[in-house]
Amino acid sequence: MHIQLLIPGLLWPAATLLGPASGLALDGLATLLGRGRRQVREFEPYDRQLARLFGLDGAELPLGTLRRLGEADAPPARPGSHWLCADPVNLSFAREHLLLYAFPDGELTLDEAAPLVAALNEVFADLGRFEACSPTRWYLQLDKPARVTLYPVDDVIGRPVKHFLPEGDDARLWQRTMNEAQIVLYNHAASRAREAAGQRAVNSIWLWGAGELAHAPLAPAKAVQATDPLSLGLARAAGVPAGAPDIADALRSDSLVVLDTLRKPAQQLDLEGWRDGLQAIEHDWFAPLAAASGDGRLKTLRLCAPSDRGTLDVEVRSADRWKFWRKPHAFDALLKSIAPPPLDLPGTPPPTHSPTDR
């Protein structure tokens, strides 16, 4: 049995706490870390790593189209249409820099999103059609592909937006579109009502995910287990069965398992939510996988955890269970051992896609 386990957000962001996992009982994870071969690779955006597991690579990945494909109960797409992610965000000034912040799950409701999306459709009817598949996942449906490089929202969260402006043939069009959308949303009664109630306003959208599929994704395993729409969209495009994460099913068939519950808490520095999520993964996944590896049921486990520190890779093979000299390695000790990257000053572009990708 072979399992590939992808966990974005497992590594707490580098520039904050030194011991975010201290005091947590993570025996299963410690066993896997000690028993396996581990390395920390250089930073690479999570979406790039996920797409490459499905055989997709290149500068312009159609992440908007793929994520929309993975949405549950979404309205059917028009044949030949193209999609951009158009996620609602809050822009605010910190000193002289305009920073972008996403909304965590539960902070917005569909009742709040609906009038904002309707207002965008009134203004941009000639450009395409906006829709909200969830309170925090919005889309723009286009009739033709956008000739532009747009940066994923995860790359921009908490950072100056001036470093991530649209590039390419249609850059001016999309920059103007985002500027006009800011005006529409900032002045909307729903955003004003949120501000009056002491909540963050939805005062902009972030467009990203432009691109076209050069070829169909390839199935990375016999089954994919995930709940996030991008992973599900990739699986559906590849024609591979997909369902919710389930350890029993994963131990019966070679699987790619994407556990996405730590990604937003890590991005938003929600330490309590992150610790609660980590304990749940320990109980539901790390402990059973350590046991399955120990008794030979699991032939190979590859754990991959993308983060701003880099990407943690751990490979555990069934033969490793006989290497008694490999002792458990505490997760908190691992976090402390990973050297933090150089401090990003506000005026310095943060690490993201390499210049050759532009």
Rank of each mutant, 00 (worst) to 15 (best):
G34D: 10
R35L: 07
R35N: 04
R37C: 12
R37F: 10
R37D: 10
R38Q: 13
Q39V: 14
Q39Y: 09
Q39W: 11
V40Q: 03
E42S: 11
P45V: 07
P45S: 07
Y46T: 03
Y46D: 06
R48H: 00
Q49K: 01
L50G: 08
A51K: 03
A51L: 12
A51C: 05
R52Q: 06
L53V: 12
F54N: 14
L56F: 13
L56N: 03
L56C: 09
D57P: 14
D57V: 04
A59S: 11
L63M: 09
T65H: 05
L66T: 02
R67S: 12
R68H: 09
L69V: 07
G70W: 09
A72V: 03
D73C: 00
A74M: 02
P75W: 00
P76I: 06
A77Q: 03
R78A: 10
P79G: 01
S81H: 11
H82L: 08
H82E: 06
H82A: 13
W83S: 14
D87Q: 01
D87H: 05
V89R: 02
V89G: 05
L91H: 02
S92Y: 15
S92K: 02
S92A: 10
S92T: 09
R95T: 08
R95H: 13
R95W: 00
R95C: 12
E96G: 12
L99D: 00
L99P: 02
L99T: 01
L100N: 12
Y101V: 07
A102N: 08
F103R: 08
F103Y: 13
P104H: 04
